[in-house]
Design a protein around this nucleic acid. Structure first.
Lengths: 233, 233
DNA sequence: TAGGATTTGTGCGTATGTATT
DNA sequence: TAATACATACGCACAAATCCT
C-alpha cells in the first residue's frame, strides 16, 4: 500500500491508544470496502504495522475487530485474508437491513438540522456529477458516504451501530457484481434514490425517507439476484 | 475467581486458537452477565491469564472484543473495568430490541423442531421451579438461557447475532434493579411470559411468539422505569 | 516426502500512564 | 509535590501451523 505520510502523521499525533486504534480500524475497513483490498487479499501484519509505523500488537487489535465484523479472517500459518462476499449468504442480511432502514424513519426520527441537510445536498450533487462520468470506485465511495449521512436521520444510536455493521457486511457486493451489470444504469438509479430521499428529508418527512430507502434496498437486491442468475445460466 | 479445573481442561484440549478464544470469551461474558463480575469490577489481565492457563496475549483478544461489545472498558494505567448499565441509556436499545423481537417472528420464521420444543418446555419447567423459590442469580441465568432458545425461532442468522449483541448489553439491568423491586413478582411475570410464548410456539404460531415477547419487553422496561423513578423520588 | 520460507499465535519483558501515599 | 506501586499498551522473539518447492 502507499506510504501515505498524512496517515502516519495522524497516527503519531494521536494521543491515546483508542485514537490510534480507530484510525487503523477505519483505514483498513475503508480499504476493504472500496476494494483497495479485494476479497481474497492476504494482508501481512508485519507490512501493515510497518506502513502505520506501529508494532504488530496494536495493529492486531484492529485486525481482530475486523475479523469479528466478518471482513477479515486470520488463519495461523496462512495469513489474514479479506473475506469474500456471497450474494446468497447476504439474502438474510439484506432482509434485516430493509427492516432496519424503515426503523430509521420510525425510531427516534430526528428533524434534520442545517448541517444534515447540507450533507444530503452535497451527496446529491456528487451523485449528479457521477452520473455524467460513471466510475465504479467513486460509486462505491458515494454509497458509503450516503449511508453515513442517511443514519443521521435517527437519534437511536444502537440502531446506527447495528446498521453500520450490516452495511459494511454487504456494500462490497456491488463492487463484485457491477462488472456484470450496467454501471451507468446503476449510477442513474442510485442518483434517483438519493434525489428522492433528499427531497423527503427536506420536507421533514423522515419516515418517507426510510420507506424509500427500504424500497430501493429491496429493488437493488432483486437486480443483483437477477444479474447473478443471468450470469450463471 | 475459582480455579475451575474443567475450564482449564477445556482450554487445554481446545485445538485451535479460535476455540480457545471462544471459551474465554463466553466464560467472561457469562460472568459479567450473571454479576460474578458486577459493574465497576476491575479485572486483571494477569490474574485471568493465570486462571485460564494462557498468556496475556490471547486473553487480551477476548477482552478487546468484549470492550467492542460494550461490556468492558480498558484504560491504560487503571485496568479493565466492567461497564455500568444505566437505565436511561438503555432506552434506545430497548426500543430497538422490541422491534427486533417482532422481526424474529416475521423474518424467516422457523417451524420449531422437536429439539427446540423440548428446550422451550425445559425452560418453562425451570421457570415454574424458580417461582417456588425465587433467586436472583437463577433468574438471571434463566433469562439468558431463554433468550438463546427464543432466537431459535428464526433462521435469520444476522438477526440472531444482532439480537444477541443487544441482549447482553441490556440483561444486566435486571440484576441492578431487582433489589429495588419485588423479585417474586418479577419471577412470576417472567414465568407467565415463558408459558405464553411456549404455548404459541407449540401451536406453531411463531409470529405470535414474537409479539408476546415484544409486549413483555415493553412492559418490563416500563416497570423498570417506574421503579427507578419511585426510587429516586 | 521432506524441508525451508512465511505467516499468525503466544509468551514475556519493557514503556507508559494512573492513582495513591 | 514527588515517589512508589500497579495497570494496560507496546515491542520483540520464539512457537506452531501452513504452503510451496
Amino acid at each position: 500500500m502507499k506510504p501515505s505520510d498524512e496517515l502516519v502523521a495522524a497516527l503519531e499525533e494521536a494521543g491515546s491508544a483508542q485514537e490510534r486504534f480507530e484510525i487503523m480500524y477505519d483505514t483498513l475497513r475503508d480499504r476493504i470496502s472500496v476494494s483497495d483490498y479485494p476479497p481474497g487479499t492476504r494482508l501481512s501484519e508485519e507490512a501493515l504495522a510497518a506502513e502505520f509505523g506501529v508494532s504488530r500488537s496494536p495493529l492486531r487489535k484492529a485486525l481482530k475487530i475486523l475479523e469479528a465484523d466478518g471482513l477479515l479472517q486470520s488463519v495461523q500459518g496462512v495469513g489474514t485474508i479479506v473475506t469474500d462476499v456471497d450474494l446468497d449468504e447476504l439474502t438474510q442480511v439484506y432482509q434485516l437491513r430493509m427492516e432496519l432502514n424503515e426503523l430509521v424513519g420510525r425510531l427516534s426520527p430526528k428533524h434534520p438540522d442545517e448541517t444534515t441537510l447540507a450533507l444530503f445536498e452535497d451527496i446529491r450533487k456528487r451523485a449528479e456529477a457521477l452520473r455524467s462520468a460513471p466510475d465504479m470506485k467513486i460509486f462505491a465511495r458515494l454509497n458509503i458516504d450516503f449511508f453515513h449521512v442517511f443514519v443521521r436521520l435517527t437519534d437511536n444510536q444502537p440502531l446506527v451501530e447495528v446498521s453500520e455493521r450490516l452495511f459494511y457486511q454487504t456494500c462490497r457486493i456491488w463492487l463484485k457484481m457491477i462488472p456484470m451489470m450496467d454501471l451507468a444504469e446503476e449510477v442513474a438509479i442510485f442518483a434517483g434514490e438519493i434525489a428522492a430521499i433528499t427531497d423527503a428529508v427536506r420536507l421533514g418527512d423522515t419516515e418517507a425517507a426510510g420507506h424509500i430507502r427500504r424500497a430501493h434496498l429491496s429493488m437493488g437486491f432483486a437486480r443483483l439476484k437477477g444479474h447473478a442468475r443471468r450470469h450463471t445460466l
